[in-house]
Design a protein around this nucleic acid. Sequence first.
DNA 1: GAATTGACAGACTAGTTGGTCTGTAGTTAA
DNA 2: TTAACTACAGACCAACTAGTCTGTCAATTC
Lengths: 203, 203
Amino acid sequence: MNSAVAVRNPDITRQKILDVAFEEILLKGYQGLRVDQVLKRTALTKGAFYHHFTSKQALGHAVIDEVLKPWIVEKWVEPLKEFKNPVDDLINMLTEARKEINTAELHTGCPLNNLTQEMSPLDESFRLRIANIWQMWHQSLAEAFERGRHNGTIRTDVKPGNVARFLIAAMEGIIGQCKCYMNDQAFDEAGECLRDYIESLRA
Amino acid sequence: MNSAVAVRNPDITRQKILDVAFEEILLKGYQGLRVDQVLKRTALTKGAFYHHFTSKQALGHAVIDEVLKPWIVEKWVEPLKEFKNPVDDLINMLTEARKEINTAELHTGCPLNNLTQEMSPLDESFRLRIANIWQMWHQSLAEAFERGRHNGTIRTDVKPGNVARFLIAAMEGIIGQCKCYMNDQAFDEAGECLRDYIESLRA
DNA sequence: GAATTGACAGACTAGTTGGTCTGTAGTTAA
DNA sequence: TTAACTACAGACCAACTAGTCTGTCAATTC
């Protein structure tokens, strides 16, 4: 019996589990995620957990669909819709993002990449859900370049789909590489080249 | 009692464990690696395993130092020493590597990136060993560009260290992205941009 | 306001997993 | 030849972990 609050709010309870599970997966990976640890941190019990999720795998699905995906949508897909000048807008975005990153966070890596590398080979149900997110991100970035081509801010010989794939890969690669260095030097070194490359796309 | 061969060769035994463990880690990750599964595949027993390795963690260390590291040395560090014209040599190397990759393998991802993303946050002892490999790779690639600058095959305004970081990141990012797509389309799309970027470094 | 349902609490379990320990056969040195 | 040591074999164990089950209290329905 939980002595304190007896107020019930199933939606908040569920969301608390998802948020903590997401954090735990970032730190330990899905396979290192312990249901008990999530319950400890949320001050909930097995009863609560298995009321909201049928299994650990179901939790994994929910984390991908309800935490990771919305995060990419908010962070990338939505802003990309507003891009008028992809070169400037992208560089601005990356510059802003760079300011927010501290050395400690850098050690965590990108959530999308983390889940991709560990979870996608484990289970087809994970892989498909994650591939969906990559696809979404790729498409919105490609569309931004497509618009840039049409409005004269991007070189006409640029292939939006290809460049989008390459840029996403480069960004993830940079973050992933820095994950095992404790300093952000590698981040800025590669970042300089990334900026130059983006600049080279300008019409 | 093993009925068949009673010949003893501790070095081969140890190497068999390392090779199978490496494969298992590629498929399931370190946390998904089961000592029992390695023993099953090698037809060995607990006695053999804990004679050669003090713990699962020690096995992880050995896999990084004695399998992953030599693999990068053979695949990258050694060939890079011979590079005369980094642009041509790199494009040749990537073209050859592309031929060897089939869709199934693509699903496995790059061993270095796999271990980096999963293992480096788990334990400082893992992180340092893996960072050492990245550093080695980066240095040998940077040196190749440095030589290219001096022998006139690479633009003089290219910063070898930065470009090396960026290229490594891009390559890893491309492979990592393809890990959750089952086709190699994304690979070739991004690969085209990668080639263009490398070409742009030519003096 | 009684009954039904929803949202948990928490003890318990069965299966897994890294690791131990004793025994034994091959190998080597004297 | 034999004693000492190495390289295993394989039964066993303790800890962990996902998942179950019964009970209980709040919330909603009628």
